[in-house]
Amino acid sequence: MGKVIVITSGKGGVGKTTTTANIGTGLAMLGKKVVVVDADIGLRNLDVVMGLENRIVYDVVDVVEKVCRLKQGLIRDKRYEGLYLLPAAQTKDKSAIKPEQMLELCNELKEEFDYILIDSPAGIELGFQNAVAGADESIVVTTPEISAVRDADRVIGLLEAKGLNSPKLLINRIRPDMVKKGDMMNIEDMIDILAIDLLGVVPDDEAIVVSTNRGEPVVSDQSTLAGKAYNNISRRIMGEEVELLNFDHEEGKFTRIMKILFGK
């Protein structure tokens, strides 16, 4: 029986889709059977970040409306064994799916896959409600900015109200140079404020822009800092204890063994 993990943030543009693509690919590279689901109906993007935009025939709305079978809607990523994408519909709007349908879809996917990653749209309205409907666990993505952390706090409250206890925090786009100068909140600052467990930290890395341009998730390039960070995060999700990456600055003090066990 697989596990459904929703990736959410409240605020837009903090890196939910990039995170979903990279954790999904990362888990598949570690031998897991994974499906990444784009729940951002009307603003489809996970397909381009994954580099699978030319292969779409059906989408998630077709699947829940039973226009096609689930198997027909899934796009197999030929580069990574066991990795699949269920794309969002681009021409419909968020009301095209109801939370109950999403729950049913998640339950069906759980029979087939080890991990089901749901890329939530920004906001806290219906699209978010759909994305969390079938989730067992949640990852909250934030960046070291006031607006993103504030929205993360709001979303954590909403997730807990939905019974999704202990969401895990992913801090994206940390700039070690700015943290060192005291011009950016550091990891401890954000954990202190949000009071949830840390899943991982991803540095602001040009390699992400380059890899997204190419449609190849950065986790496939282990020579990059961001690629390593996503690999570590994927391993933590699988229950391994992996130390935080040292970005060679004061954050290094924080490197301690993480005991983040997703379930098991």
Partner: peptide, 19 residues
């Protein structure tokens, strides 16, 4: 003051009201 401390203080205040 370091700008991150300003951010942290402002954030703490706004979250108290939000929560």
């Amino acid at each position: 003051k370091n700008s991150k401390n300003v951010a942290k203080e402002r954030l703490k205040l706004v979250l108290i009201h939000d929560r």
